[in-house]
Design a protein around this nucleic acid. Sequence first.
DNA 1: CGTCTATCCTGTGGGC
DNA 2: TGCCCACAGGATAGAC
Length: 299
Amino acid sequence: MVPELPEVETIRRHLAPHVEGRRLSALGVIDARWTLPLTPEAVTDVVAGRRVERLSRRGKYLVWELEDAVFLIVHLRMTGTLLLDPTTAPPHTRVGFELDGGAHRVLFVDPRRFGTGELAIGADAARHFFDARLGVEPFDPAFTGRHLRELTRHSRAPVKALLLDQRRIAGVGNIYADEALFRAEIHPLRRGDRLTLRQCERLRDAVVASLSAGIEAKGATIDDFRHPDGVQGSFQDQFLVHRREGRPCPTCDRPIRKLRAAGRGTYVCESCQPKPRLSPYAAAASSSRRPARSAAESS
DNA sequence: CGTCTATCCTGTGGGC
DNA sequence: TGCCCACAGGATAGAC
């Protein structure tokens, strides 16, 4: 399952007590792609030997805060995970974090190799890194319905695309966007600028509620990418609509449908989440594409 | 500037 | 049964 805010937060909580206060004695970068555009040496030279002051999270980033304001900023992307003291290194191990001279270790395992490790030296560099990429943290008190309204009211893009835009809201991905839109009874293709303040308030509450439920369940885990030494979440058992095509809506029992929004597989109850009348995007998509595709599109 | 599309990558599963 | 290829998607560069 693709790690989003709740999955990254779960990993952070799992690892933090075991790494904070210890020394990152070595960093073994097996896959040089991980540190691009820097070389592995450029990163390992800076971080090796430094104490871990804190393991923190910002959006979907996991941050190793090292002494002397050195920040190793990790993104798991699609299939990355971090394993604590695994008995053996699984296939697709890309990076090894060695703690206290090898007494403990954390492995970064990532079959698809999209994951990244980036370096920020100095508090200003770290702040700049995040400011350039991330918007409001969903659990920040500043994230209100009114704030969400400001983030959406000037955009004609579908609301799902806005939820997925990390520069507006940090940490929401495909799963939690679907779940939140269902809870708020808003169709994912509804235009941002057509949302009422009341809808924005419902959606804010739904985003927070979905992410909270995800964290409570220790995130979502998919069978394919779980490892014995990793965290096993159960949130996939509580999905209301995500990946539940054809199954009954928990509210009205009508079948959940799959469609495409913001280029992603998207699950909705079109009875509880009323379809926008004439989204320019939906209209353009159905008229500009060959008619034969529209039937295949929904599977 | 705002929005959309292609790209990176590899395991999975649908189709034949 | 086994092979092939489309598909999945977070972030970002580039297109329009």
